[in-house]
Nucleic acid binder design. Sequence first.
DNA 1: TTGCAAAACGGAGGGAACCTCCGTATAGTA
DNA 2: TACTATACGGAGGTTCCCTCCGTTTTGCAA
Lengths: 199, 199
Amino acid sequence: MSQLTATESAGARRPRRADAQRNYDRVLEVARAAVAEHGGDIVLEDIARQAGVGIGTLYRHFPNRQALLEAVFLDDAEQLRRVGEEMCEDCDERAPLDLLVEWLRMQMVFGARGRSMGAAVMNAKHTEGSTIQVACLAARDAGAVLLQRAQEAGQVRQAVNISDVLALIHGIIVASDQAEDRAERVERMFDLLVAGLRP
Amino acid sequence: MSQLTATESAGARRPRRADAQRNYDRVLEVARAAVAEHGGDIVLEDIARQAGVGIGTLYRHFPNRQALLEAVFLDDAEQLRRVGEEMCEDCDERAPLDLLVEWLRMQMVFGARGRSMGAAVMNAKHTEGSTIQVACLAARDAGAVLLQRAQEAGQVRQAVNISDVLALIHGIIVASDQAEDRAERVERMFDLLVAGLRP
DNA sequence: TTGCAAAACGGAGGGAACCTCCGTATAGTA
DNA sequence: TACTATACGGAGGTTCCCTCCGTTTTGCAA
């Protein structure tokens, strides 16, 4: 949850006051639930009300809609990195391609949860030095290692590039967002992607 | 332009009045230009003003934002279908896979033009019987024939399915929308997709 | 414990955009 | 030319985003 304490970015600032931290956490928690249900189409005033704080408080902690969505997103990116790194250590026991595919599948599940948060997040992802870009790059790097292992094992073409694969995954999510046969469609597109990896 | 006259859907209604048709066309034209520049983030009041009509007039012709975007979209879908059908007739002279790839590339160029119109259009695409679905299906069918030719020539795996390929193309567009190295990135993802087609 | 300054709270309200409603204007027919 | 169905247009209701600022609270220091 409150992975961001006030001591961000090098500044030796005084830590957040207790009430502030409490409200920050509460807002973030409500927002997380709301995003899981409605995607990016959340109404900030509703979030504030449900969290039991004023709209002004919400905006102090999250200067705009984007910032709130990003905060919700960050946690997940962090988790993805962690799992990716753990998988790297299993490379001796399981086929690297299998691990890679499993990790990519996680990317999809996780991305699908955020659904229409997509547009907002996509922006930040490409903003140089943004917290969210840093988190995504960290997750990506974990994936890059998995990919490399699979390539060394001769299970994936050398030309394949992790960031393209991830972008394509994101594309699959967005492209199938509204489809009525969502699950199967995602599965087929994913298969198509995996097929494209092989030598 | 005014591909939709008032005589829609079987109804034997009186044709649109001349001034109405004029305004319809003018709004659509302005909207088309605006979409090309700003994607889906157009302000309807601006469109109305630039077209020299009142906001009420705009809303009479296009009951909501979505309807206007869809109208802009339709034309393009229609063109895509036409080109696809023309290509089918060239299958004897050129390799089917080449034609397919060229057509898919058109899909991308054309989709990229509409950019963030994406979300709005995606909705309609999956609404049973919507004009836009019909247009997309017609375009898709043209592509399906191209795909089939390529499969018959043994240049594409049998398991590949046109609508998945198109969805993936759409995904590529969306996924690379904000990237700074957009062009190359699209190109690489597209290559990845094409590689996935081959047997 | 008490006083106090920095920090945080919260909601009124400005502004942007969407869309509706209805009185007024006009095209096209008899 | 007169009349009616059709179309026009913009005022204003609604929703949501975000800012501003007077009030309240916290936590440190005496």
